[in-house]
């Protein structure tokens, strides 16, 4: 099964919409709720990153019996130093975004903790591609 969602930069009200939708679908497939929650967390963080930092993006989700693949591609500023961005507490979010409780600098580390394989590629002033793979059997990771 394949699903695709458009994500608008700056649209904080709608942030989480794609993740919530996919979570409902995964629950209907009777996957382990703990694995569904891990996927939900990693998708939400990826979605919020596009909303907070990029102009727009697309989230593609590919579900098969062995694994869930989430691909998030955005058009935006890119990440100059991915290792630095991965550090907990490091954030470039604006004050307005932080007042809403976003921009804690925990998004990327939450994605890393909640996926089996996290792959990030970024090009400055072009955009970022995030690929997250989660296996459906807890032992598979």
């Amino acid at each position: 099964m394949k699903f695709e969602y458009l994500i608008e930069g700056g649209d904080f009200i709608r942030a989480g919409h794609a993740s919530s939708d996919i979570k409902k679908i995964l629950n209907q497939l009777n996957l382990d709720p703990a694995i569904v929650r891990r996927i939900a967390v990693s998708m939400y963080e990826a979605e919020v990153n596009v909303v907070a930092h990029a102009f727009r993006g697309v989230m593609k989700v590919n579900i098969n019996p062995e694994r869930i693949l989430v691909l998030v591609e955005d058009e935006g500023p890119g990440i100059p130093d991915i290792a630095q961005a991965m550090q907990e507490g490091y954030s470039t979010a604006s004050d307005k975004v932080r007042e809403m409780g976003f921009g804690a600098g925990m998004g990327l580390s939450n994605m890393k903790k909640n996926t089996d394989i996290l792959d990030i590629h970024s090009a400055i002033n072009r955009g970022t591609v995030v690929k997250m793979t989660t296996f459906t059997k807890s032992g598979a990771s």
Partner: peptide, 13 residues
Amino acid sequence: QTHKNIIAVASLK
């Protein structure tokens, strides 16, 4: 926090 995104957080977790 009172804005709409708290719903997504509570629901996803």
